[in-house]
Write a protein that binds this DNA or RNA. Structure first.
Length: 259
DNA sequence: ATGCCGAAGTTACTTCGA
């Protein structure tokens, strides 16, 4: 089976490309982030015609997450246990579902904005809540993974120029420690193949020719338990989806499993 | 060439992303 995660950067602005990609790549399960629409505005009809059931969580602003599945969606959970609020609101950044033989979380970890911004401790608290929420499933026998936009580069190699990011979010020790805390629940960062260039970046900023110059970051991750990694066949970043007019600024991360 | 930011909310800009 094939499982993917993709920060779509507006599911409605990207719908034609999403449908074309679903038809071409034929994933069984897709975790989406940054829907940028309310759950009621998710194009469930078009996705159903493409063969996918949808579980979505969104409020119409800059967040929103979903799971698409061709193999069933059961036991849907919205929000982390004790998920921290920001400006008084628990934002729609996490949704879980069981799809056939696997269980997945689709997560959109807060950006952090700046190390001096309240968004930064919010990001760290979100990752801590994520670690606690997934512990039981991570330790289970069922193939399980947390997929999504983590907004953390696990190592300096996961950003095109670590020196250029000195003192900024995404590369700090505290963020990497918070990510390691999630992995300590029993999950492994499934490292994908790059289809071009040396490193499998998943995000390139729209500005400054960052994609043609390969100024990327690897921030979209799949953290999987042993039952999942034991069934792993392949993993790659579909960078072709970053090309052309109307692309998201993130490319899909695709995982193939012998399940 | 992969090409110089894009989307949403609100309505001419602002906020957000990383």
């Amino acid at each position: 089976m094939r499982v993917a995660t993709w920060n779509i950067n507006s599911i409605n602005a990207r719908l034609a490309r999403l449908l074309a990609w679903l038809e071409a790549a034929r994933p069984d399960v897709v975790c989406l982030q940054e829907l940028k629409c309310a759950a009621s505005d998710v194009p469930t009809g078009a996705l159903a015609e493409a063969g996918y059931e949808v579980a979505a969580h969104g409020d119409g602003r800059w967040n929103g997450v979903a799971v698409l599945s061709k193999i069933g969606i059961d036991d849907v959970v919205r929000d982390l246990e004790d998920q921290p609020a920001f400006n008084g609101a628990v934002e729609p950044r996490a949704i879980a579902a069981t799809c056939g033989p696997v269980r997945v979380w689709s997560v959109y970890v807060p950006n952090g904005r700046d190390v001096a911004d309240p968004h930064y401790p919010y990001k760290l608290a979100f990752l801590s809540a994520l670690a606690a929420t997934v512990a039981a499933d991570a330790a289970g026998e069922r193939p399980f993974a947390v997929l999504g936009d983590f907004n953390v580069c696990p190592t300096d190699e996961d950003v095109w120029d670590a020196e250029a990011f000195t003192g900024t979010t995404h590369v700090t020790e505290a963020e990497r420690s918070a990510l390691a805390e999630v992995e300590a629940a029993g999950l492994t960062d499934v490292f994908p193949r790059a289809l071009k260039h040396a490193w499998p970046f998943t995000f390139w900023d729209y500005r400054n020719l960052d994609f043609p110059k390969n100024r990327g970051m690897r921030i979209d991750l799949a953290l999987a338990n042993p039952a999942w990694t034991g069934a792993g066949r392949d993993a790659y970043v579909d960078r072709d989806e970053r090309k052309g007019k109307g692309a998201s600024d993130h490319a899909p991360l695709v995982l193939d499993l012998d399940l």
